Computed example of a mutant assay.
Amino acid sequence: MSSSELFIKEHDILNQALLAGQSEAMPGEYYRRHLLILSESYRRLVRESERMIARSDRAEREMSRLNAQLHQLAKTLEYKASYDALTQVFNRGAIIDRISQALENGPASLIVLDIDHFKQVNDTYGHPKGDAVICGLIERLRCCLQGMGIIGRVGGEEFTVLLENMDIDQALVIATRLHADLNARVLAALPQQKVTVSFGISWAAPQTRFDDLYASADAALYQAKLQGRNCICTNPSRVA
């Protein structure tokens, strides 16, 4: 529908007023009547315009509100896609991506750690207590790392710590500090029992694949388990 079809009545009133304006020697009442009709039509158009502007403003505010909600929803979905729901550290997919990106830009060390005898914790105290132990461990790691590493959860009770641009000796110092802290103080979530952790450490040169770096650290972790758990092992064969 064209704009002229929407305003047929208004166009008729305007045309009649123009014709009246071109007429001469007509009674004053004739001109007054056409002026009143034109004025009333104009007033109605003004009211409709004001209502349209108000609706437009409301629509714009609603659009802004919906856009803000959409933006927040996108951020929420992005966060949930990247972070572990329980611990709020990077989930498996996200930490793999982060490690891969780090290796594209430089060398990196990787600490893989696993809670010793964690199944016994779940079996003895229940899974909610096990979840609390995991969260307590993550808080302890964050405190000890002081922002120096990036934590990821790669399995139920297995975690990684990415140390960008650090060699294996620096990684060993950090792992030793974490290990000592866990042995010195029990976790608040399980004060009646010490929770210990086994560590495996590897290092890789730039452009190394994630799978190679992780496999090397995982082999060191397996060695730590074989040695009786609650200890640190490094992989002597550096991934290059």
Rank of each mutant, 00 (worst) to 15 (best):
I151R: 13
G152W: 11
R153S: 10
R153C: 14
R153Q: 03
R153K: 09
V154E: 10
G156Q: 06
G156S: 01
G156K: 05
E157F: 07
E158H: 06
L163K: 15
E164S: 15
E164R: 10
N165A: 14
N165R: 14
N165P: 11
M166W: 13
M166F: 12
D167S: 14
D169K: 07
Q170C: 15
Q170P: 11
Q170R: 13
L172K: 15
L172Y: 14
L172A: 09
V173R: 15
V173Q: 07
I174C: 09
I174H: 04
A175F: 01
A175P: 00
A175M: 06
T176W: 00
T176F: 09
R177V: 00
R177G: 00
L178H: 00
H179L: 03
H179C: 03
A180N: 12
L182W: 00
L182S: 01
N183V: 06
N183W: 07
A184H: 09
R185S: 08
R185H: 08
R185G: 02
V186L: 15
V186N: 14
V186A: 14
V186P: 13
L187C: 02
L187Q: 09
L187R: 06
A188V: 04
A188W: 00
A188E: 12
A189Y: 06
A189W: 14
L190M: 07
L190F: 01
Q192N: 13
K194H: 14
T196S: 09
S198L: 01
S198Y: 00
F199H: 03
G200E: 01
G200K: 03
G200T: 01
G200R: 05
I201P: 13
I201G: 02
I201H: 08
S202A: 03
S202C: 04
S202L: 00
W203Q: 12
A204V: 06
A204G: 12
A205Q: 08
P206W: 10
P206I: 06
P206Q: 07
Q207D: 14
Q207W: 10
Q207R: 08
T208H: 13
T208K: 02
R209H: 11
R209W: 13
F210V: 11
F210C: 02
D211G: 06
D211L: 10
L213W: 00
L213P: 07
A215E: 10
A215F: 04
A215Y: 05
A217N: 09
D218I: 04
A219I: 05
A219K: 00
A219D: 02
L221Y: 04
L221S: 03
L221A: 08
Y222R: 09
Y222E: 05
Q223A: 10
Q223C: 06
Q223E: 02
Q223S: 09
A224F: 08
K225H: 09
Q227I: 01
Q227E: 12
R229M: 01
R229D: 04
N230D: 06
C231F: 03
I232S: 05
I232E: 02
I232V: 11
C233N: 09
C233H: 12
N235T: 02
N235G: 08
